[in-house]
Design a protein around this nucleic acid. Sequence first.
RNA 1: CGGGGUGUGGCGCAGUUCGGUAGCGCACCGCGUUUGGGACGCGGGGGUCGGCGGUUCGAGUCCGCCCGCCCCGACCA
Length: 478
Amino acid sequence: MTTTDKLPTRRENFSEWYNQIVQRAELADYAPVRGCMVVRPYGWALWENIQMALDRRFKATGHVNAAFPLLIPKSFLEKEKEHVEGFSPELAVVTIGGGETLEEPLIVRPTSETIIGYMYSKWIKSYRDLPLLINQWGNVVRWELRTRLFLRTLEFYWQEGHTAHATSEEAEEETLRMLNVYADFAVNEGALPVIAGLKSDKEKFAGAVRSYTIEAMMGDTRALQSGTSHFLGQNFARAFDIQFLDWNNEMQYAWTTSWGLSTRIIGAIIMTHGDDKGLILPPRLAPIQAVIIPIYKSDQEKKAVMESVERVRQELAGFRIKVDDRAEVTPGFKFNDWEMRGVPLRIEIGPKDVENNCVTLARRDLPGKAGKSLLSQQNLSQAVTQSLDEIHTALYDRALAFRQANTHDPVDYAALTEAVANGWAYSWWCENPECEARVKDDTKATTRCIPLDQPDGTGACIVCGKPARRKVIFARAY
RNA sequence: CGGGGUGUGGCGCAGUUCGGUAGCGCACCGCGUUUGGGACGCGGGGGUCGGCGGUUCGAGUCCGCCCGCCCCGACCA
């Protein structure tokens, strides 16, 4: 989409604001098949930075990468009861191959627990083979009815970690370790404040014993599940016969986990940090950390400016830098263009800067004059490092303040229904599914998670008034 | 799958009431002037009007069937 029209504001029409940013910033475009997306180079560059930041953390916690097949025998899905019930409605099934009807239909993986479970049963014989810690980067297909770019598409890209352990304790520990990896990534790379917590039975992954999640609040106050980590108990081990001989020479089923984070996180970044001028990318993930815009009138000025630009570019070689030297658009157009695309820093270099051996630095998160400063070309690299760090912190602080301002602690059920109409409710809950269902029926809000951090003491369930041990977050979600 | 809407150059739309040789804005291409917050002038290219069938001398426009997409609901990383 190429247009100079203004974006709708977030207040006017949040979902249209989101759709237009995705396309105008050239992150993604609609594919010819309904519900599928093309991730464009700028969006994929962002995903690559996400992958690198996560992969580093996976390796640091002892995991290795592998690749499992896209096609899975249909019967595999059917081996775990809850799992098949959870996924059946959204499977893409291949029934013909090479012009022949297949003896057994193949499904396009909606997730890989089953085929990885099958392989693990072949590979795991002894406690000495454990833990087995494998991750894969790939794509999966889920036949969703209502789709949005990045948030919910038929096909999406993600990583899925699958681990097997000798004891329940070890597996549970792994589940929480990876949840913390996601939280650390969200906070320190994406500047996304997230709440780590436990999913209710209703909201957990089909086939899991317990699911954990990191939940983030978007700019319209709706919640987005941004990463999940599951303790699978022995469910898949029993279904796929993953058995090992333990220290006492006895056969035992392994304990498994799985954890995933998808391109949906890009939606979280857009909807958490973006403003009415467009995208704002967190500096540590941004494909372009600073864009240099040369400004000149005459050829003579151009020569001097471009020399300066080249010097600055070399000074900043350690950053992801783009020089926008397009001749066919004005600097003013470029300012707006790169703001739309969320580049954290803009460096303007014009005749006045050349004369004073300076550059003009503008922060994306602070619009207009407030974010502009005049900097010496000496030690610019240091100033850019500092500025990017400041932007990261400012984005995180702003998002956290927004979440806090929109998280309520309702006094009664009536107040709860009001709270979830424009924010989150953080309330005592007795953990009875009927209370959860009632809130959903009345308000469309679901339980997002039972935060791991809990206040002391106990309370009364916000719905039924019975004793409650823990507080939960109710919110409308994507 | 239920309810509502919509389909005309890449995008946004007008034209449909009352049938008569398809138009506007933006984008795109060329030349020139511009350039510190979305430049301007002149010239140019691009559409079998969602598809199929029918009525008619003639269909974007009338009739029938089909298809796609969007919004709202049930399901979901």
